[in-house]
Amino acid sequence: MVTRPCGKTGMRLTTANKPPAPTMSFTPDELARYQRHLSLSGFGPEAQAKLQASRVLVIGAGGLGCPILLYLAAAGVGKLTVIDADVVDVSNLQRQVLFTTDDVGQPKAEAAARRLRALNSLIEIVPLVGRLNRNNALELIRAHDVVVDGSDNFATRYLVNDACVLAGKPLIYGAIQGFEGQASVFNFKGGPTYRCLFPEPPAAGTVPNCSEAGVLGVLPGLIGTIQATETIKVITGIGEPLSGRLLLWNSLTMTSRTLRFAADPASRITELPPEGYGETCAVPAKPTGDELTSAELKANLTVQLIDVREDWERALGAIQPSIHVPLGKLGTDEGAAALAALDPTKDTVAYCAGGVRSLKALVPLRERHGFQAVRSLCGGFKAWTDR
Rank of each mutant, 00 (worst) to 15 (best):
G7K: 10
M11K: 15
P22K: 13
S25A: 12
E30I: 13
S39N: 13
L40R: 02
G44K: 10
Q48P: 02
Q48H: 00
Q52F: 06
S54W: 06
V56G: 00
G62E: 01
G65D: 08
I68A: 01
L72S: 01
A75C: 09
G76A: 11
G76K: 06
V88W: 13
V97E: 01
F99M: 02
F99N: 00
D102T: 04
L116F: 05
L119P: 01
L122A: 12
L128S: 07
L138D: 00
H144V: 02
V148D: 01
V160F: 05
V160A: 08
D162M: 01
A167F: 03
P170C: 02
A175H: 14
I176Q: 00
G181E: 01
S184W: 02
V185K: 02
K189N: 12
C196V: 09
A203Y: 09
G205R: 05
T206A: 10
V207R: 01
V207P: 03
A213F: 03
A213R: 12
V215I: 15
G221W: 04
G224I: 05
T225S: 12
T231R: 00
T231P: 07
I232D: 00
I232P: 00
G239S: 12
G239N: 06
S243H: 04
T258Q: 10
L259W: 05
P265E: 06
A266E: 15
I269P: 04
T270Q: 11
G278Y: 03
C281A: 15
D290A: 15
L292W: 10
V308Q: 01
W312H: 15
E313Y: 06
R314N: 11
I323F: 00
H324T: 09
P326T: 08
G331M: 08
E334R: 01
A340V: 12
D343T: 09
D343W: 07
K346T: 12
D347W: 03
T348W: 02
G355T: 10
R357Q: 12
S358W: 07
A361C: 11
A361N: 02
F371G: 01
V374C: 11
W384H: 02
T385Y: 07
D386I: 12
